[in-house]
Design a protein around this nucleic acid. Sequence first.
RNA 1: GUCCCCAUCGUCUAGCGGUUAGGACGUCGCCCUUUCAAGGCGGCAACACGGGUUCGAUUCCCGUUGGGGACGCCA
Length: 467
Amino acid sequence: MSIITRFAPSPTGFLHIGGARTALFNWLFARHMGGKFLLRIEDTDRERSTREAVDAIFSGLKWLGLNWDGEAVFQFARAPKHREVVDELLKSGNAYYCYCSQEELAAMRDQAKAAGLAPKYNGYWRDRDPKLAPVDIKPVVRLKAPAVGKTVLNDLVQGTVITDNNQLDDMILLRSDGTPTYMLSVVVDDHDMGVTHVIRGDDHLTNTFRQIQIYQAMSWQTPEFGHIPLIHGPDGAKMSKRHGALGVDAYKAMGMLPQAMCNYLLRLGWAHGDDEIIPTEQAVQWFNIEGIGKSPARFDMNKLLSLNAHYLRQTANDQLADEISEFLPKDVSEKLKEAGYRQRAVSGMDGLKQRAKTLLELAEGAKFYLLDAPLPMDSELKSLLNKAESQEILGKLIKLLESFGEWNESSLHSMVKEFSEGLEVGLGHVAKLVRAALTGSNISPSIFEIMQVFGKQETLSRLRTKY
RNA sequence: GUCCCCAUCGUCUAGCGGUUAGGACGUCGCCCUUUCAAGGCGGCAACACGGGUUCGAUUCCCGUUGGGGACGCCA
């Protein structure tokens, strides 16, 4: 039998990092098994669901390369189907109307808590004659869950977990306004969509017992469940906004590469021996649910960054030249469209990409190739260049360069080195001046590589520029 | 409060009864070097604690402690 997984986020905010990992695991498992990966938007909370959030989920998944099979299912649209199931449950005696008010329910919870029990509904209307119902209260429909015995979950990740049914109460299936609850909708949708493996965050673990009760009441076969540990913030607590970790779009904006994100997320809670660099294609081959760890992992930006730097260096130069475009100011990125400037950026990437961890840093580092002299420069560097002594050195160098024929990195290196030794100032000092004139900075790739990329004419023109 | 889950370097992890407890990120030092990186080499750094089981426990069992999660007419 072919397996079917799904990712079922609620569109109430951005696609966060934990959700992305859940999606990744579902996607990897489906692809590994040659099955299907479905997407369902759980938009039954009409108050909080937004179109923007739906778009963020779509674009986030696409960016990560987690393509889903078929059209995304919107849960709210299936409400009529969910209500049909409630009718069936009512008919079969597996559900009943409950007329308790919010106040009464709160009192019950307090009472249970005071008695040392889990705060829950006490089943007041479970076996009561509906004729006794107050006329002014709109009822909810509750599942008539087994009151005794145990519910067993053989979880793919967590192992066998057993809950005493007295821990669970009769959950609400239909709200008083007639809308289905999450608990019911998930079960009905997973069943109708043919989902065979439900892989989700372990914050859903206890919900699963309730959901199993619905499957049982409907005599439906339960899918396999795998509850993966949540990602925690650096302080060990559940990942939240205050950890500064936002939606996947935020990581994109930081200049992260999707391959790096996937690799990082995969290694959070899953390992393949000592392997660290696991490109997605490799992950599809290797992925298995058994390998998922049970302990929560903390989010570590440094490791993500290091992985990102790795994938950045693996990326082809011309592709990087395209990628940095959106990280550049408009006027600078426009230059990228002109063949000459673009060629410089592409040629310069070898030196640039090993100095950047993100596309943002890469773009920053590439600016000097795209800007025209005079370059923006801090005052300290300016005054260094303006010193008579500096000008004298540069003047002599320019003369030599003008008649220098072998315009390539290594020849330029030897030549300038010899030149410096002749002047008895040291290559370091000369390099600093050249670097300033060529890049406007005192940090850059090799100046000889830069000279080669610029070519003789542009190099000399920059060296002659006065600040 | 009740229930559930977790526990190896600072972090992510390998380990599935006998290992000098391995790798990666970070960190420190050295090499390379025109700056900054990258790269190479090396150092520091962990089995939470207490009981069992066993010839032998990081590994299996129980407890303690610590962390996390769930207990909505949210999803």
